[in-house]
Design a protein around this nucleic acid. Structure first.
Lengths: 194, 194
DNA sequence: CTATATTCCTAACAAGCGCTCGTTAGGGTG
DNA sequence: CACCCTAACGAGCGCTTGTTAGGAATATAG
């Protein structure tokens, strides 16, 4: 029963796709319903509100980001190794479901007050996982930077907005992109030996 | 007469602020009008449509990005110098008007078909300026990367989404942020000498 | 001072929005 | 058979939206 794809799952997926393509406010509940072959009002058998639909997409994505990063962050390994793995972990989540990732990254702010604050909290916690790693790298004198906060944001900016240009049917696999991005972020684009 | 700030300018600025804060579709023309002390319908003395208002914000920002980057891209100088100056030029535009930059970067896609295509063209051209510089860097064997397209997108991702966390009243000036970002992008965050 | 634009207001419009409601069809379950 | 539950329908409510029209007010120009 929970093995089959329920109409609720279908709805969430359709919502993710449409919210991603058109934005939350440009997508009507009837648009979403149409995509899964039901009437607009019928969506309310599964979700109490449009906001709850958005929340389903966003919180789901947030869970996946945490599930992917946490084991890396908690592992005991050289910090450069951890950072590289973290980059790849994050990119895996983004590329595994581009729609949901895009919604999580850009549409979350259209949630109602309460849920928006909850997302803010989650994002802060997630960023903190990164900041802790960066701080360790600075302490261990393996990173050149000094401001862990801005470094973390720099990293997350490059990673998050991957969804604006990465296409799964493009020339690069997710793994290749992850490895490349890790190189860019850690080593920069400049040649090491001139 | 054109030295004074016209109501039209006020409207564009108010639109930029609200589009940035709430998003295009979550902002009504009445919201914008209220902010400059007129009625909703009165906006149509200055703009033919809401779309035209968005276009005013977006095209204005696009112009500024080009005006800032082009002289750098066309200058005859060592490529690493140019890239560093380009980073700073881009960041200057973003930080000079965070609202407009945010709208240009995320809300442009809600433009009508024609204007959206026009923006796509402009963005391609802008990205091409970057790609050309990166390609030169690769040719001159001063950059380690090989794929100019992905490098350009990496750079622009880090720079564009600065607006999500940079605050003018924060601890860093725009110049400091620009210099820091140039370091991150060119040299990476890893220490050069271990 | 008059004529002409420009700017703004008020009022209204049609369309679409999120959402609710009474109802129904179908499938277990007693 | 009667019972309840879930999922869906489809009409429609109240409201907001972008936009328009006609006229009043204000500024500009001759």
């Amino acid at each position: 029963m929970s093995l089959t794809v329920t109409k609720k799952d279908e709805a969430r997926q359709a919502a993710a796709k449409l919210f991603c393509e058109q934005g939350y406010h440009a997508t009507s509940v009837r648009d979403i319903a149409e995509r899964i072959g039901i009437q607009g009002g019928s969506l309310y058998s599964h979700f109490a509100s449009k906001d709850e639909l958005l929340w389903a997409v966003v919180s789901d994505a947030a869970d996946r980001f945490f599930a992917s990063l946490r084991p890396v962050a908690e592992a005991d390994a050289p910090i450069l190794n951890k950072l590289r793995k973290a980059v790849i972990a994050h990119i895996e989540v983004v590329t595994n479901d581009l729609d949901a990732a895009a919604v999580y990254i850009v549409e979350w702010r259209h949630l109602g007050d309460e849920r928006r604050q909850e997302v803010t909290k989650l994002r802060d916690e997630y960023e903190a996982l990164w900041r802790d790693m960066v701080e360790q790298g600075i302490r261990d004198r393996v990173l050149a930077a000094t401001d862990a906060a801005s470094v973390s944001r720099f990293i997350l900016s490059s990673l998050n907005y991957l969804f604006t240009w990465y296409r799964p049917d493009g020339p690069m696999t997710a793994e290749e992109v992850g490895s490349m991005m890790a190189d860019y972020i850690l080593d920069g684009i400049k040649r090491r030996t001139v």
